[in-house]
Amino acid sequence: MKTEYKYRVLALFSALVLFSIAILISGRTVDAASGGSITGKVKLNGTAPHQRGIDMSKEPTCAAIHKDKPVTMENVVAGADGGLADVVVYISQGLSGNEGASSEPVSITQKGCQYIPHVVALDVGQHMKVINADQTSHNIHPQPKNNPEWNKSQPPGAPPFDVTWANEEIAVPVKCNIHPWMHGYVAVVKGPFGVSDESGSFKLQGVAPGSYTLTAWQETYGTQTQKVTVAAGKPATADFTFTAK
């Protein structure tokens, strides 16, 4: 009996060692499986500034798409119940540094002479697909500070192309010179991130237990931070409120 017990402990122990080796090697995958999450809401306090209408008469194919619903600027997109959309929430401090890039590609689609989504967030090294769904050429022209600048046009019917970003940067403005009103952002972050939807809700997944500094970035209002602690298996919550200027 005694020896049997000994073997059991040994087996358990070696399993644990193997497991931790596996954790060390594969880092994030296990994180995601075992890690917690952070959810929350971003709210806008006050009324959003006037978003000017966009006149697309230069590009009739795009103007036709928006015939029924005029398009406005998207510098501040507030939902009906005060939620603030297109806010990037990410962990600015406290990451272990072992987080790998997500293998899921994100995409940015040019449709109706707008960027959909208006704000894209992705991991350093994560793949981004650039799609042109319009009947016209666009040029995609990001103007980063920490990454190489490029400027490339994509004629109608051209296949999507793939981009990755080497360095963290929040956020890279993206524009189309052919349609000067087209304007969007790519936020290149490290580690878990979330982008708020129309209701202001966001969710960061795969956050390992620990305490972090959480940052929310909005293109017009800038950043806000708060501390948050994630316990194993329990979703943490954090809400942000921006004040309209």
């Binding site: 050429s137 040029n139 490339k152 046009s153 994509q154 004629p155 051209a158 296949p159 192309f161």
Partner: peptide
């Protein structure tokens, strides 16, 4: 590669 991806000429 950039100017003519897949052999299709871009405007530039």
């Amino acid at each position: 590669k950039a100017g003519a991806p897949g052999g299709i000429v871009t405007p530039e």
